[in-house]
Simulated scan of single mutants.
Amino acid sequence: MTEPQIQTRAAQPYLGVTATVTMTTFHLVADRIGEIVGLLLGRGQEIAGAPFLRYHVIDMEAELVVEAGVPVAEPQPGEGEIKPGELPAGRYVTLIHHGHVDGLIETITGLFAWAETQGLTWDMTTSERGEHWGCRMESYLTNPQVEPDMNNWDTELAYRLAD
């Protein structure tokens, strides 16, 4: 695990698809990234960053509200279930995970432990439905068409802090 960093980020427009899923149906949202990329490329638009999954609500025992998204340089109109959105500006804790996505849980656990030692507070509230995040995301920095071996992938975690 690399050392976590605190970054101040500007707001970032994107196009995304949101779905309520479980851990066993997670692919139903994650697999939509290619569709969003295809829509943008079909419009002649450039992608302005790594595709991501944004976690709006997390209840690992029940349901998660997750959004698959692709950053764009300028706000774009949606189409069908693909909607425009904006990642909020603010301070984020970021960390690069190198390796298979199955190892993310260990990296996330380490990130949470580090943040606790730093006295940091997440942009997150809890309810009976789970954790509600202002912005918690995983950006997929490795193009699977270039590097198909998931053990060589880089995934950036970015969790917004409460300010």
Rank of each mutant, 00 (worst) to 15 (best):
T18R: 14
A19M: 11
T20H: 01
T22F: 03
M23Q: 07
T24I: 10
F26Y: 14
V29E: 01
A30L: 06
R32C: 04
R32V: 12
I36N: 06
I36L: 04
V37I: 15
V37G: 03
V37Q: 10
G38C: 00
L39R: 08
L40A: 11
L40T: 12
L41N: 09
L41W: 06
L41F: 08
E46I: 11
L53K: 05
L53R: 09
L53A: 14
Y55T: 09
M60W: 05
E61T: 15
E61P: 01
V65K: 10
V66Q: 02
E67R: 03
G69F: 07
A73R: 13
E74D: 12
P75M: 03
Q76W: 00
G80S: 01
G80Y: 00
I82C: 08
G85T: 13
G85S: 09
E86S: 13
E86T: 15
R91H: 13
V93P: 08
V93K: 06
L95S: 03
G99W: 00
G103K: 05
G103R: 03
G103F: 00
L104V: 13
T107K: 10
G110S: 03
L111V: 11
A113E: 13
A115I: 13
A115K: 04
T117P: 03
G119I: 13
G119H: 09
T121G: 03
D123K: 05
T125D: 08
G130M: 09
E131W: 07
H132P: 04
W133P: 11
